[in-house]
Design a protein around this nucleic acid. Structure first.
Lengths: 344, 344
DNA sequence: TAACTTACGTCAACCGGTTGACCAATTATT
DNA sequence: AATAATTGGTCAACCGGTTGACGTAAGTTA
């Protein structure tokens, strides 16, 4: 035992001393450059174990400017979709031995203007030198942020309808709106109401576009209710209170939660699905199968989106290649909330 | 312009050169120690802006061993509860200018044994020198992890029924189970089934304990159905398929999603709440108010839990004091899924 | 026997800040 | 007029790894 009291954590030199090798050999042990004998390797491993040595990531980063971490820019609250994307990101990151550093926007970012805050977050990511960045804020105008982004660190946005090839991923919300509406049209409905999601979200806008295209394609006039300020069932309920059941035989709701709220408001008036009207949502959250009635919906695999997004980013980090993109295609899940119309 | 091409980011020295001050004065500008005149301060700020200078966090950490980040150990998937806790943590962290670094356990951590993985995550946190750690994995046995945790960096567990005073936070699930059951008893129910949550979660165990205590306190015999492998409505539905409606007049479900699945299974048999049976859940997830019928439930404010947890941890980080704890008390939210029994 | 390969050791520079010691000039206060 | 307080510069050590250059031995292969 050395007389010197050690307050700080053990360093490479301490490990080397314990294993009767030089600190540089310990470095070789970790980095893999140069030769380290099998027996020496074991002695080093033992010394690490005994001392409880953990390498200092800051020192490593300072020298190598790599951190094995990626930054995630997210909106304030995690609902089903964003939480699932985060889950997917995290799972894929775990597999690649990368950790996520998350920066959240303020809850009322819409009012305050989220741009300065987003810039601060990105600047923070530069400060900690993340190896890559995921921008998971599907807000109209995120593109502006990325223009003055340093091209040298990979960045990928998980947004709507990745039009460009440049490292984007997202759900195909336009298709979701389109197919959902076609399903209702196919059942014979002609008066189809769209309960839109929050106008401040790209997904909501795309789903509405898809709906409108399907309606116009069939020669039907679109009827959109913009009552939602968020993705919650509260918004759906409020929309349901505003809607007149006499004016539609089917509803396309921008997501499952809104559909749930709408169903609830209708039931209060004695109007029920699928007898009195049909309704289809988007997301297929786990609970949707147990709504009353079980909800027909466009499934979107958010977790797979998160995993694929991370994998693309990671690929870009290690190889330097970019230009991929990934789109989650929606899938119609038929359940009991849709049926042919009772009246035409 | 210097002839030397600069590939790397600007450093403090570059800022100093631009502002006609020394690099040390720039350091004073950031750290606040020593004097920097108002006019000089402006020149430095301008130079930072012009160069797009961002301090190198690794260099800072290497010297100061502070990171302005806290680690969060979370389970694999984010459902309503854990996502809300994370939201709260993130919002409070944002306010304190701290970022979260998250480490997720594998999805099937239950099968594989989560301890080694959790240890790896904690070791990673040591490696990056987080200022504090939040252990948000309400698994039986987390205590074992903490025994060999280095006391010098603050750690707080968000778990069940924080018995000790030593920096813990959590929901009072026992009380939730107890009060929910008392509510049903108070309505006149005597045959009350408990649909338990996953036995691998502390909350589920505590809610069951609370239920049992209330039943036994009223001289009633508890009847517990252990069908859930997770917190999902699928589990609730499966439990509902196993349950015999003739054996109970009321149900206490371990959370809202399970209650939803159970309701759905019952409805398939033509058994409805609140006419045929009463049911109460736990969580009060936003959708619960729009279930059919709207669900009576024990509200738990997970976001507040997350925010309080972070604030406690942060207080501990800056002051060094510990010994606080925070408990989220459940609150009974009366809706339409409970009523006095039709039969006794 | 020469030429590699393997397995280390020893310096030393470097990453980019922080911190302390020390000095010098102005301005403000007693 | 003497003593502070304020402002800012210089030099150098330090945090804990990584990386390169160079040297030395042993064992292997041509």
């Amino acid at each position: 035992m050395a007389a010197k009291a050690r307050v700080s954590r053990p360093s490479m030199a301490d490990v080397g001393k314990r294993a009767n090798v030089s600190a540089q050999t310990v470095s070789r042990y970790f980095t893999g450059v140069g030769y380290v004998g099998a027996e020496t390797r074991e002695r080093i491993a033992a010394a690490i174990e005994e001392l409880g040595y953990v390498p200092n990531q800051s020192a490593r980063t300072l020298r190598t400017s790599r951190t094995n971490s990626v930054g995630v820019l997210a909106i304030g609250a995690f609902n089903y979709g964003s939480a699932s994307v985060l889950t997917g990101l995290g799972l894929a990151a775990r597999e690649a031995d990368v950790t996520l550093t998350i920066a959240q926007l303020d809850l009322d970012f819409e009012a305050k203007g989220w741009e300065p805050e987003a810039r601060r977050a990105l600047s923070h990511f530069k400060s900690v030198q993340v190896d890559g960045v995921v921008v998971s804020t599907p807000l109209p105008g995120v593109d502006r942020l990325l223009q003055d982004w340093d091209q040298s660190t990979p960045l990928i946005t998980v947004s709507e309808l990745p039009s460009s090839d440049e490292g984007t991923a997202g759900t195909h919300s336009y298709a979701a709106g389109h197919e959902a509406t076609l399903h209702l049209i196919g059942l014979g409905h002609r008066e189809i109401l769209h309960v839109a999601g929050p106008v401040t979200r790209n997904e909501a806008l795309e789903r509405e576009r898809g709906y409108r295209a399907a309606m116009e394609g069939a020669g039907l006039s679109p009827h959109v209710l913009h009552a939602a300020t968020d993705w919650s069932s509260v918004s759906g309920f409020q929309a349901g209170e505003l809607a007149d059941p006499a004016t539609f035989t089917a509803v396309f709701a921008s997501n499952d939660e809104i559909a749930l709220g709408f169903l609830s408001a209708m039931e209060r008036r004695g109007v029920r699905a699928p007898g009195d009207f049909s309704i289809v949502g988007v997301d297929d959250m786990p609970a949707a199968a147990y709504f009353s009635p079980p909800l027909t919906t466009m499934r979107l695999d958010f977790r797979a989106l998160g995993m694929a997004t991370f994998k693309m980013l990671h690929h870009q980090i290690v190889t330097g290649e970019r230009g991929q993109h990934y789109v989650v295609e929606p899938e119609l899940v038929l359940r009991e909330s849709t049926a042919p119309p009772a009246r035409t």
